[in-house]
């Protein structure tokens, strides 16, 4: 069953995936979210990563920066669509207090039975709004890799804006931490375009199963196993 999820994710990545360079300077994600980059990043795009946007420095099996630019009330966070599961999906609500938003991220990151330990959660200004920051440790179930991560977020006009970074505790987290912190500190949310602005700018939640950090990562390691080659052995 897990394999199915994984395979769907792999297909998506394989068939339609692409990587785009995110240039130094001002970058806009979605309609209302922007940030300043001191150096370039790689934006890995494939259907299924929505509602987040995935950036990486070392590759998607190593480090992931996930950007949420305006999650709407009632929107599902990385739907868990494995056909046979009856699991409850994780849904964002505009009136969610900070602790519930963080527990929402937590649920997504432990969906594969990875162990997640919250190290810190506190208020922090983010993108010019009153927001929050959280730090965590995670042991990825798929390969036992120990990861460290942190996230920043804020709710503006009922929409969630957030950044979550996760990377191996060895070498990679310390290597890129400052870079990501700088991005977080430069983030800005612009006001909604007029009160009567259309709400449904983002596409509806994509019906492809994908996890946040990690849930999808096994996808690639498993890609190989799930892969098909026409000739039998």
């Amino acid at each position: 069953m897990k394999y199915l999820i994984v395979m769907v994710a792999v297909v998506v990545l394989a068939g339609c995936g692409s990587v785009r360079k995110v240039e130094t300077g001002t970058n806009k994600v979605g309609e209302r979210f922007s940030m300043q980059l001191e150096g370039p990043w790689n934006h890995v795009d494939f259907p299924g990563i929505k509602p987040g946007q995935l950036w990486t420095m070392e590759g998607i099996t190593v480090d992931e920066l996930i950007i949420y630019a305006g999650i709407k009330d009632g929107q599902v966070m990385h739907p868990d669509n494995a056909a046979q599961t009856k699991k409850q999906n994780v849904v964002f609500r505009r009136d969610m207090p900070t602790e519930k938003i963080v527990s929402m991220f937590e649920s997504v990151m432990t969906r594969d039975d990875s162990v997640f330990k919250l190290l810190r959660i506190e208020p922090s200004s983010f993108a010019g709004r009153k927001g929050f920051l959280f730090e965590f440790e995670r042991i990825r179930r798929n390969d036992n890799l120990r990861q460290l991560g942190f996230g920043y977020g804020a709710v503006d006009d009922g929409e969630l804006f957030a950044l979550v970074y996760v990377a191996p505790a060895l070498t990679f987290f310390p290597r890129h931490q400052a870079r990501v912190e700088a991005i977080a500190h430069s983030a800005l949310i612009s006001p909604p375009v007029g009160a009567a602005a259309p709400v449904a700018i983002l596409p509806p939640p994509v019906r492809v199963s994908i996890g946040m950090p990690g849930q999808r990562l096994p996808a690639v390691s498993t890609a190989a196993r799930a892969v098909a080659i026409p000739e039998p052995k």
Binding site: V19, E58, G59, I60, T61, V62, D143, L145, P168, L217, V220, S221, A223
Partner: peptide, 10 residues
Amino acid sequence: AAVAQSIALH
């Protein structure tokens, strides 16, 4: 293993 997968993929 994680790094090798990224080198192979990317």
